[in-house]
């Protein structure tokens, strides 16, 4: 097991490696609190999601009330508070994607995956949600896969190919 570091209250909050990353980040900001968005990103990168326990740890680590961490977690859309699906499809539903047939492709994806927008498959393999403009309207209709890869100029054929690649068909 990795050694755990101790904070001032002699309680282990994070693994030594994560703690070191967080400390380096926090040091760049004027106040500890200002680093919270980055701190949450780093925890997600390490663990996939931010469990309630970690939310409390963040509060303690940044010396702010747990409710403030909760507020940030719920205000922003990119933080997961539950384990996420292995493959995640975030389909853009805003105007440029709407104009170029995005609605129809969303329906198609729902059929192929056997789940509705906003759901995760029972086996946890894939999830589907709609998001607002991802700043990629030049490749509309588009979606983001696994919260980072941009897939654009989508057609039904292209979706079929993508689903084969990530093994997500229902």
């Amino acid at each position: 097991m990795e050694p755990l570091t101790l904070n001032s209250q002699t309680q282990a909050l994070f693994s030594a490696a994560l703690q070191a990353k967080l400390d380096a980040k926090v040091a760049k900001y004027e106040t500890r609190r200002a680093s919270i968005l980055e701190v949450l990103h780093l925890i997600m990168e390490e663990k996939g999601h931010i469990a309630l326990e970690d939310e409390k740890n963040v509060a303690q680590y940044l010396s702010i009330p747990p409710i403030d961490v909760r507020e940030v977690m719920t205000f922003y859309t990119l933080y997961y508070d539950k384990p996420k699906a292995k493959t995640r499809f975030n389909v853009c539903r805003t105007l440029a994607c709407h104009l170029t047939g995005g609605d129809e492709l969303l329906k198609y994806l729902e059929e192929k995956l056997g789940i509705h927008e906003g759901q995760m498959s029972k086996d946890g393999k894939c999830s589907l949600k709609t998001v607002e403009c991802l700043g990629a309207c030049e490749i509309a209709p588009m979606m983001q896969i696994n919260d980072h890869e941009y897939a654009g100029n989508l057609t039904k054929e292209k979706i079929d190919e993508l689903l084969k690649r990530v093994k997500c068909e229902a």
Partner: peptide, 10 residues
Amino acid sequence: EGEPGTFKDK
């Protein structure tokens, strides 16, 4: 860069 229709800063 959140204004829908805008992607230049990217």
